[in-house]
Design a protein around this nucleic acid. Structure first.
Length: 298
DNA sequence: TACCAGGTTAGCG
DNA sequence: CGCTAACATGGT
């Protein structure tokens, strides 16, 4: 990773200079379907919740240099957001075979996407919800779930004034494990409501240990195997949880879009191993490419 | 208004 | 194994 500077500005904001758009593209990263709770506030600012704290982040020009601008403190950046955006991983080490033209195109188109290090429980619930759902509805359902069972998060500026934006934490497994099915009516979970409650009970009763699955010594394949023991968690959801929630970067979730790519461009059979330890990054490049290449003017 | 969505499950043969 | 119907419901 190249050198970059973290600068505490006088207005309480923090600038991060030296991380260009090819390294971290906020629009691509936060709107590529890996996360569901970030919202774009205006043309260049995103607002979201990381570790139960609200952050705004965008890009701006500072002394002629393109920098990230955030209301995070320097400590927040160093201790939380740097890892959340996976900036310690060198994405140039992604292996893309010379002959694999489609993968090269997808990589070029998706440059700047980062695989977020999301909360494992939130990722598990989010991707259980994602099955047989479209992305706008997934976002709406999660928002209603947080509004009803999460805790309000207030944000205060440097003068101690509360921000008008109220966000809600993602409800804990403990909270959801105590609910009855009817308590989830009106949220829009559909038939997945019982899956969510059972997953919450599995976590709180330690039938499954997400912290253990997140350890670096745990392989992605074993994590997927354990996750699929949960009701409502099949191979695709388990791979998404492993990639986006447990940060197993070699995992390669195959959904309808990726399957379509495999059928059309890889004659029905793709060699995931060829992409190496960052295969999950290539998966996300491909997903983003197939879904957005016709919608975005490059 | 119908149709569809970052799948999973159970029940066949 | 492989194939298929059923699944709830908000967004477009």
């Amino acid at each position: 990773m190249e050198e970059y500077k973290v600068i505490a500005l006088e207005n309480g904001l923090t600038a991060i200079c030296g991380i260009d758009k090819a390294t971290l593209d906020l629009d691509k990263t936060l709107d590529c379907g890996q996360c569901f709770r970030w919202k774009k506030q205006d043309n260049l600012t995103w607002r979201g919740v990381v570790k139960d704290k609200i952050y705004s982040i965008g890009r701006t020009e500072l002394n002629g240099e393109d920098c990230l601008l955030t209301d995070a403190t320097v400590e927040d950046w160093n201790n939380t957001l740097y890892d959340y955006f996976d900036l310690g991983t060198d994405y140039s080490s992604l292996s893309v075979p010379e002959s694999d033209k489609f993968a090269q195109q997808a990589q070029k188109f998706g440059r700047g996407i980062r695989i977020l290090k999301q909360d494992n429980w939130e990722a598990l619930v989010s991707f259980i919800i994602s099955q047989r759902n479209n992305i706008p509805k997934i976002k709406g359902t999660i928002e209603r779930l947080c509004f009803k069972y999460g805790d309000p998060i207030y944000q205060y500026n440097s003068k101690g004034e509360p921000s008008p934006h109220i966000y809600y934490s993602f409800p804990s497994a403990d909270t959801i494990s105590k609910l009855d099915i009817e308590d989830l009516d009106g949220i829009g979970l559909g038939y997945r409501d019982e899956y969510i409650i059972m997953a919450a009970k599995a976590v709180t009763n330690k039938w499954i240990d997400l912290e253990e699955l997140e350890k670096e010594t745990m392989t992605g394949n074993l994590a997927v195997l354990k996750l699929t023991g949960l009701r409502g968690v099949g191979p695709k959801v388990a791979n998404c949880v492993a990639l986006f929630g447990l940060h197993k970067l070699s995992m390669f979730p195959i959904d309808v879009w990726i399957q379509r790519i495999i059928d059309i461009h890889y004659n029905g059979n793709i060699d995931v191993e060829a992409y190496g330890k960052l295969a999950g990054l290539m998966q996300q490049y491909m997903f983003y490419y197939i879904k957005y290449k016709d919608k975005i003017n490059v």
